[in-house]
Amino acid sequence: MADLTVKIHNLELKNPVLTASGTFGYGREYDDFIDVNDLGGIIVKATTSKHREGNPYPRMAETPMGMLNAVGLQNKGIEYFVREIYPKLTEYNTNIIANVSDSTIEGYVNVARKMNKLDHIAAIELNISCPNVKEGGMAFGTSCPSAMAVTRAVREVYDKTLIVKLSPNVTSITDIALAVEEAGADSISLINTLLGMAIDSEKRKPVLSTITGGLSGPAIKPIALRMVWQVSKVVKVPVIGIGGIASASDAIEFLLAGASAVQIGTSNFIDPAITIKIIAGIEEYLIKHRIAKVKELTGALIT
């Protein structure tokens, strides 16, 4: 048996496979298909300070090897999360990570402060990269000063592992990564979706109600891989790779590029049991290549 454990700051993961926020609900949506406890952890749907209805339908467009979404952070707010959702999450025996978003720094701080008091929330992932909201979200993640400001403000009220999720919609991903590391991030996850667009030529109309949306799926994997590689070379904190992972070999590519763990997102929609298959596939790879620990793969790219 190979050692699949990894560490993200203070977070001990039984394996490097996490689920990406917004693609895995609150875990229970997948209970019929897998034992969620077998995962390294789950990152639950973004929580904001206040209830948000999200964007109008249509919110999704299928694209070659991927999809655009414009959900817009639909959730019932932190109060509801603490009261109704959190108690159910405590029944899981794996790391529960909360994705935190908002439109103002005060909002982020409010959510982070409340998450800090919840024992079973092992870490938070600061979402400064959602492309589907008019205010906040990606706006924070596309400039160094604002990315630093929101990370610093949350760092002051949050004691546990703080992961910051970056947007790929920037000129220099390494500048943003260095900025949030300096502001106190314990780990960096990337990438969130790429801003994209779909048009129905017959109707001469955009497919999405918001016109633009976030692209995810295997189509974005090469970009994600490149950004993980660039970022992991310049930061000291552990990096979590996200973007179009659909197989164990995809996951291993991200580890080789420098990630310590990975998140599986859109692929959960195609195969709700994909995460378990990826974990098994990583172990097979380690055995086949006589590698004792998955940690040894991180950054082991031969160039």
């Binding site: 339908y57 999704m60 979404n69 929609f269």
Partner: peptide, 20 residues
């Protein structure tokens, strides 16, 4: 139009009296 079919992605919403 749906992506996941199991309530995870929130793409297929309809506006009901209880919201989306």
């Amino acid at each position: 139009t749906m992506a996941c079919g199991i309530g995870a992605c929130l793409c297929c919403v309809v506006e009901s009296v209880q919201g989306n």
